[in-house]
């Protein structure tokens, strides 16, 4: 459990870095590392498929997309971030962490929960027999994403 806690702490630290770092490329890499750590956390929670997906798809594919976009859009124009936010928001975040640490355990004790039997079978069975509709949804959302990208990068033949 100690190792898991340490991994989670690293995950949060990397995520904060991904938001706070000035350089876009570095923050994309921090995001990828955060995904990698999250994948390992998933793996250790007994969810190897989620872990593999997190590492290959989020840490891999999404990072590639981010870096591609950063390369395509960079041209020396810097976005000036708000100075005030840079001072205020870390303070707010630390305050939130403190509150979070204080109340989360007690809050969870208040959540009533039904005791239910565990599940049987393998991941494949659960996915195919239990949540097949989600697979239809996945196909639909992939179609939506593909058509969206095609539409946004289409050649405008007449207009303009």
């Amino acid at each position: 459990m100690i190792l898991q806690t340490a991994l989670l702490a690293v995950l949060v630290a990397l995520s904060v870095l991904a938001i706070a770092l000035k350089d876009l490329l570095r923050s994309a890499i921090a995001l990828a590392l955060a995904s990698l750590v999250l994948g390992i956390v998933f793996f250790r929670m007994g969810a190897p498929y989620a872990g593999v997906f997190e590492i290959s798809v989020v840490a891999g594919l999404i990072t590639v997309l981010f870096i591609l976009t950063i390369a395509l859009t960079k041209s020396g124009d810097e976005v000036r971030e708000s100075k005030l936010a840079n001072i205020v928001f870390p303070v707010v975040f630390v305050a939130f962490l403190a509150i979070d640490a204080l109340v989360m355990k007690r809050l969870m004790g208040k959540v009533p929960a039904l005791a239910r039997g565990g599940e049987a079978g393998t991941f494949g069975e659960v996915l195919w027999k239990g949540r097949t509709l989600d697979l239809v949804g996945q196909i639909a959302v992939i179609l939506a994403g593909v058509f969206a990208v095609l539409a946004l990068f289409r050649q405008r033949d007449k207009h303009e």
Partner: peptide
């Protein structure tokens, strides 16, 4: 969860 999934399907298409 299926409600959420299909809500996202419609949403992603609508952004484009």
């Amino acid at each position: 969860f299926a409600v959420y999934v299909f809500l996202e399907v419609a949403a992603v298409a609508s952004y484009a």
